[in-house]
Design a binder for these strands. Structure first.
Lengths: 125, 125
DNA sequence: CAGAATCCAACTGGATACTG
DNA sequence: CAGTATCCAGTTGGATTCTG
């Protein structure tokens, strides 16, 4: 109760850190990318692409650029031919993962309650 | 570390509770609406509209319907003329608020670090 | 290998007007 | 009062092709 009160008094007007974060990680591939890098730090572009299943070049590059700009991941190029570029999670990116735990827990809890006899996570066809 | 490891092993494949939640509350007005209802439970449509500043009828109605479907808010109509409809936060909606605290904290922390001399929250013009 | 460039479809959300 | 209906613009993301 106190916690939630704290949240809403801080936020629900405008310029709110929570909405900022939502915008930061709200696009389709950001979280999957971060998870992969958190899972195994220092991945090459194509390794990443293989793990973030379904992502396209366009989107992967775009997301990585944005995450880099925001300081969540870092890009290291060897500048050789053929090119070799690895992506790493920076501290801000890493610290984001545990920050998501509350939400994740809520989600698991919610799904458990609402799909008592169903599958695991069927949101939309 | 353990927490974050826990998260990624559970998730980054497909059907993931966290992505589910993100979809649930990811649209533009959902969180502001929930905050308002958390702030003062039992608001009329137009009260809500006044508090969620900037929202349009179309969007407010759409969001409320979706939140209602998902069981986060409840709708009570007196069925009179003129109509009187109040919206309440249900338990699932209320429990979501503290679950957001981790993210919110991370956001405040992040903003503090990244705008040492700047304003409070300038994301985009 | 690690992208960039281009084009396009779908979705999101806003503006406006109308209604029982 | 509490919406609904319609239309429209901007954004998101996918498909495809090309390159040093």
């Amino acid at each position: 109760m106190k916690a939630s009160k704290n949240i809403k008094t801080q936020n629900y007007t405008d310029r709110c850190p929570l909405l900022y974060v939502m915008e930061l990680i709200g696009s389709k591939w950001k979280l999957p990318i971060l998870w992969c890098l958190n899972d195994e730090d220092g991945l090459h572009y194509n390794e990443l692409k293989r793990r973030v299943h379904g992502v396209t070049n366009t989107m992967l590059t775009k997301c990585l650029r944005e995450l880099e700009e925001r300081g969540l991941v870092s890009r290291h190029s060897r500048g050789s031919v053929p090119p070799s570029v690895t992506y790493h999670l920076r501290e801000d990116g890493r610290s984001l993962m545990p920050a998501l735990e509350g939400l994740c827990r809520w989600g698991m809890d919610y799904l458990k309650k609402h799909e008592e006899g169903g599958g695991t996570c069927e949101d939309k066809g």
